[in-house]
């Protein structure tokens, strides 16, 4: 498969920023009643990629996070696990071991996350390494510098090369656009349309390593790109907003947005994820509040 052929007819759709903001304002003002809220919160919990991506990560920290992934809050009955944990490649083996016997997946960031500033071979080697360690999913970053220079072929070739490695091992691929570095929603749409040409399993907003992470406008634009791609090709691609979503209320807004744009088929952790670390506890606190009627305190919930 060559990017040149794919790109011959590459046209991206311009985005109306006012229209996007208006639609989001309407989604945000929607009232969600108790039973729906409880269902939505449990669904959101089940869609979380519990994430730690620090230079200071240790095997013990990752093991502890994996325990939290499987047992979000043991004193509450009927809670789902989170969808996956997301770690650096060197910690995949630790996570895999800690999660043995559960359905929680291990996602590894690869391709020189977060900047992606190295040559293609090094990126492919890192992808091979992460998969060799046992990763179920790979979160790759696109080369934003090349994208902004207009070298769309280069960017698309990279995604395709990484995808071929992943799919040869039955590993799912998420493509991080790092929307905070792209500048405008028009560029976000362009990058989404570009990445979607490669048919990855997910497109993802951000690394969480720069100031501006996932926002509702950016997510809406990406969801719309996924929908248009699905209409055109019949191929389903998932969505993962990551970074900056830390409270349960916004998580519910995101779910509403997914349902409105893509429909219920996407409302499962096979096709929608939240990349987050603090979100899980806020969801748990809101669920406990629904159960007990009392507002909760953070000190009664494990940190990770």
């Amino acid at each position: 498969m060559s990017a040149n052929n794919l790109l011959q007819n590459f046209k991206w759709t311009p985005v109306d920023q006012m229209g996007v903001d208006d639609r989001i304002a309407r989604i945000k003002s929607r009232s969600i009643k108790d039973q729906t809220k409880i269902q939505g919160l449990k669904m959101a919990l089940n869609m979380i990629d519990l994430t730690t991506l620090e230079g200071a990560d240790t095997p013990n920290k990752v093991s502890q996070m994996c325990y939290k992934a499987m047992h979000p809050h043991d004193s509450m009955l009927g809670l789902p696990t989170v969808a996956a944990v997301c770690v650096y490649p060197t910690l995949v083996k630790t996570a895999k071991k800690a999660l043995r016997g559960s359905n929680v997946k291990v996602a590894a960031v690869a391709t020189y996350f977060p900047s992606g500033q190295t040559n293609l071979q090094a990126k492919l080697d890192e992808t091979h390494y992460a998969i060799g360690e046992g990763a179920d999913e790979i979160d790759m970053v696109i080369s934003r510098g090349k994208f902004l220079q207009g070298e769309y072929n280069y960017v698309l070739d990279e995604i395709i090369a990484v995808k071929e490695i992943c799919h040869a091992s039955n590993v799912r691929l998420k493509v991080i656009l790092e929307t905070g570095e792209l500048g405008s929603v028009d560029e976000v749409r362009k990058a989404s349309d570009l990445a979607l040409q490669a048919n990855p399993d997910f497109i993802k907003t951000s690394t969480g390593k720069i100031g501006q992470a996932a926002t509702m406008p950016v997510t809406l634009v990406m969801l719309q790109a996924i929908w248009d791609h699905f209409q055109k090709t019949g191929i389903r691609v998932g969505m993962k907003p990551a970074g900056g979503i830390s409270d349960a209320k916004s998580a519910l807004h995101y779910l509403l947005m997914v349902k409105e744009v893509l429909g219920e088929e996407w409302l499962t952790n096979e096709w929608f994820r939240f990349g987050a670390s603090r979100l899980a506890n806020d969801i748990l606190m809101q669920l406990a509040k629904q159960e007990s009627g009392m507002y909760q305190a953070g000190q009664y919930f494990s940190k990770d």
């Binding site: 009627g293 009392m294 507002y295 909760q296 305190a297 953070g298 000190q299 009664y300």
Partner: peptide, 8 residues
């Protein structure tokens, strides 16, 4: 009542 019951 809410001031009294809020756990935080």
């Amino acid at each position: 009542p809410h001031m009294a019951s809020h756990m935080d």
